[in-house]
Simulated scan of single mutants.
Amino acid sequence: MAQPYPQPPPPVVRRRAWLRIFWVGLVLWLATVVVIFATGNPNLVPTLVLLGSFLVPVTFVAWAFERRETGELTPGLILSTFLAGGVLGVLAASLLESYLLRPSWWLFLGVGLIEEAVKLAVLAFLTRHLHHKAIRDGIILGASVGFGFAALETAGYAFTSLFTTHGLSVTQLVETELLRSVISPFGHGLWTAILGGVLFSSSTREHFTITGRLILAYLGVSLLHAFWDGMRVIALLLTLLFTGGEVSNGRIVHPTGGQVVLFTTLEWVGYAVVAVIGLLWLWALVRSSRRAQQQPPPLPSGWRVPIRPPGG
């Protein structure tokens, strides 16, 4: 009897693509920095801005994509939410902030409310045709929109930091990209991931629904956003409260060494507190997603369990 041919092994799904993306992108960014400082060629500035602004957001989106729950999350959908979501979010937020906000004590809260509402609306619009709305997929798609928004925002900040009163400063551009790359995972991507998870958990198969839980999540995320944006002002006020002094143009006049240390410490501790709150919130959503996966499917409508009478 002829022996059957051995079956080829199943294809191996290569994971950790995000790690390769990060290291390749980091090497290219470092090479661009070296070449710019070596040659002084201004034509490389756009390359530096784009690589530095998109490296961390793209890496995190790739990492999240490997942990998707359903097959509906295709690379095309991730790309559209990242790019279209980011562009639409930035444009809409810029328009609304220009017409609705004025300098005041409520400025940071207004920015948080507007930007989080815009990102949530864009997320709901781009994913409205999904048939299965799993919590984890909502987290991933929300993170994709948020990181797209963050990448374009970082590119804008990096570009404007290039121009100083003393001319073009590539050093300041590099410092801006490094700082925002470090803190970006705890900002827009995290906040919109939370909103995406709550949005998908509060929705039916046919459409999204606005629930009290979603509204509370939106207000809570907007508050985290406001505290994050206003942390420098909060740290400044606390420093003045503890040490005294005068302020001019948002800075302490002739600050002492102790004031500088206290201000820096308060600012970064504040950022850490906001980041931890957001991470714990997201972790709770991920846990609820896992519990939902472990629950048995509901019985079909009209199902009845027969009960035999005693002695029957």
Results as ranks from 00 to 15, higher is better:
residue 217 A to W: 09
residue 62 A to F: 14
residue 60 F to H: 08
residue 58 V to E: 13
residue 136 R to K: 06
residue 291 R to W: 07
residue 268 W to A: 00
residue 18 W to N: 04
residue 206 E to C: 05
residue 139 I to S: 00
residue 252 I to T: 04
residue 55 L to I: 13
residue 235 A to R: 00
residue 42 P to G: 11
residue 44 L to R: 13
residue 290 R to F: 12
residue 55 L to D: 06
residue 102 R to S: 12
residue 138 G to H: 04
residue 233 V to Q: 04
residue 301 S to G: 04
residue 19 L to W: 13
residue 64 A to P: 01
residue 128 R to T: 06
residue 8 P to N: 10
residue 284 A to F: 15
residue 63 W to R: 08
residue 108 F to P: 00
residue 89 G to M: 02
residue 272 A to M: 07
residue 82 F to I: 02
residue 65 F to V: 03
residue 60 F to I: 13
residue 213 R to Q: 13
residue 13 V to N: 05
residue 94 S to P: 00
residue 79 L to I: 01
residue 13 V to W: 05
residue 299 L to Q: 08
residue 226 A to C: 02
residue 35 V to N: 06
residue 65 F to L: 12
residue 299 L to A: 07
residue 250 G to F: 14
residue 274 V to E: 00
residue 309 P to A: 09
residue 44 L to K: 14
residue 188 H to Y: 03
residue 262 L to P: 03
residue 41 N to F: 15
residue 189 G to K: 02
residue 287 R to K: 11
residue 54 F to R: 08
residue 178 L to P: 02
residue 238 L to Y: 13
residue 102 R to E: 08
residue 165 T to C: 01
residue 280 L to T: 07
residue 65 F to T: 07
residue 74 T to Y: 13
residue 220 G to W: 12
residue 91 L to I: 12
residue 117 A to E: 03
residue 243 T to Y: 15
residue 227 F to K: 03
residue 276 V to H: 11
residue 198 V to R: 03
residue 281 W to M: 06
residue 167 G to L: 05
residue 300 P to K: 06
residue 281 W to N: 05
residue 253 V to Q: 11
residue 48 L to C: 10
residue 126 L to H: 12
residue 48 L to M: 15
residue 94 S to I: 11
residue 106 W to Q: 13
residue 256 T to M: 11
residue 173 L to W: 04
residue 276 V to F: 15
residue 283 W to K: 15
residue 222 S to N: 07
residue 153 E to L: 10
residue 235 A to D: 00
residue 304 R to W: 02
residue 88 L to Q: 10
residue 187 G to P: 04
residue 210 I to H: 09
residue 198 V to P: 00
residue 20 R to K: 09
residue 40 G to R: 10
residue 117 A to W: 07
residue 29 W to Q: 03
residue 149 F to T: 00
residue 136 R to C: 00
residue 108 F to H: 10
residue 311 G to K: 13
residue 265 T to W: 14
residue 130 L to E: 04
residue 153 E to N: 11
residue 173 L to K: 00
residue 150 A to F: 02
residue 111 V to G: 01
residue 240 L to I: 10
residue 306 P to L: 05
residue 152 L to D: 04
residue 244 G to R: 10
residue 168 L to Y: 14
residue 76 G to M: 12
residue 132 H to A: 12
residue 91 L to G: 05
residue 2 A to L: 09
residue 180 R to M: 09
residue 61 V to F: 11
residue 53 S to T: 09
residue 217 A to E: 02
residue 212 G to P: 00
residue 224 L to Q: 01
residue 305 V to Q: 10
residue 205 R to E: 14
residue 241 L to D: 10
residue 294 Q to R: 14
residue 196 G to M: 01
residue 154 T to L: 07
residue 131 H to G: 02
residue 91 L to K: 11
residue 308 R to T: 09
residue 239 T to Y: 12
residue 247 V to N: 15
residue 172 Q to H: 04
residue 166 H to E: 06
residue 296 P to I: 04
residue 274 V to I: 15
residue 268 W to V: 01
residue 215 I to H: 10
residue 185 P to M: 02
residue 37 F to T: 13
residue 171 T to H: 09
residue 270 G to M: 09
residue 226 A to F: 14
residue 312 G to L: 04
residue 12 V to C: 03
residue 11 P to G: 05
